[in-house]
Simulated scan of single mutants.
Amino acid sequence: MTSKLVIFDCDGVLVDTERMTNRTMAELLTDCGYPITGPECQKRFMGRTLEAVQEIVEQELGRKLPSDWLQQLRARDIESFKAGVAPIPGVAGVMDLLDERGIPYCVGSSGKYEKMHSTLGSAGLLPRLKDRLFSSQDCEKGKPAPDVFLLAARSMGHRPEDCAVIEDSLPGVLAARAAGMRVFAYVDDPVCDRDALKAAGAVLFERMDQLPGLLLNAS
């Protein structure tokens, strides 16, 4: 295995939450006078922090969203996760292989810790990741800035050039490349902009069972 550390994004890479959370966001934004569908929301904002989304929307609206908009959205998300969150098919097997090879891995996400604990817990992945979670909430800037990936590498004791990032969003791919890391983009979701992800420097893959081979053969 050429990488000394593998950094996973969370939503859409470890847990199947992107469509769920973007549907909720779209409903709230539409109620606030910013009509948008779940798929449109996902395509435009996937990979960004909610604070960044709020800033973009407020600039386009020319006014502020309700002061409790972020709290409403997070509360609705957490409530929806209680119904159950599925792990991305095959991702547990990837982590099993990394464990067998002695390759450490962690999470570098735009989501807050409360959300990661909720989604990863529901999906049954939290026990193997709970001490290796890194969030943009601890960074000055969220993705596409490299801060969260650099934080993860530094905290895990590895140089950026020795890390591989697993992403599914353009801001995440840009963040990984800005950090000087190799990046692999999971493009199972039809909303993914494959051309943009590839142009940004990602190696694309459609199934998690393809990822070990890519990591093994990466140069």
Results as ranks from 00 to 15, higher is better:
R48S: 14
N217G: 06
G90A: 10
R48D: 02
E40H: 10
R74F: 09
L65V: 03
A92D: 12
S135A: 09
Y186K: 08
Q71M: 12
N217S: 10
Q42V: 13
V107E: 00
A178P: 00
F134I: 02
K112S: 14
G12N: 05
P104I: 02
R63Q: 09
K141C: 11
D168N: 12
E206T: 09
P89D: 13
A164N: 08
D138K: 12
C192W: 01
G90W: 05
S135H: 03
L65A: 05
K130S: 14
E51D: 15
V13H: 00
D193A: 07
V6E: 12
L28W: 06
V15H: 04
G90M: 03
C32R: 15
I7F: 01
T17H: 02
E51K: 14
G121S: 06
Q137R: 08
V57E: 01
C163L: 05
L174Q: 14
P144C: 02
L197P: 05
R19M: 08
G33Q: 06
G201N: 08
L120Y: 02
V91K: 00
V107M: 05
L216C: 06
T17Q: 03
P171Q: 07
Y186A: 06
S122N: 13
L98K: 01
D209R: 02
L215W: 00
L125A: 06
D9K: 02
S110P: 03
A52S: 15
R44V: 14
L70P: 00
P212N: 11
P144L: 01
A196H: 07
G111I: 01
G121D: 02
R76Q: 13
P35D: 11
G201C: 06
P66F: 10
V165Y: 05
L65K: 00
A200L: 03
S155K: 12
A176R: 01
V191T: 13
S122A: 14
C10D: 04
A83N: 11
H117F: 13
L129P: 06
L120V: 08
R19K: 11
V94S: 01
T17E: 03
S67D: 15
R76I: 08
P190M: 00
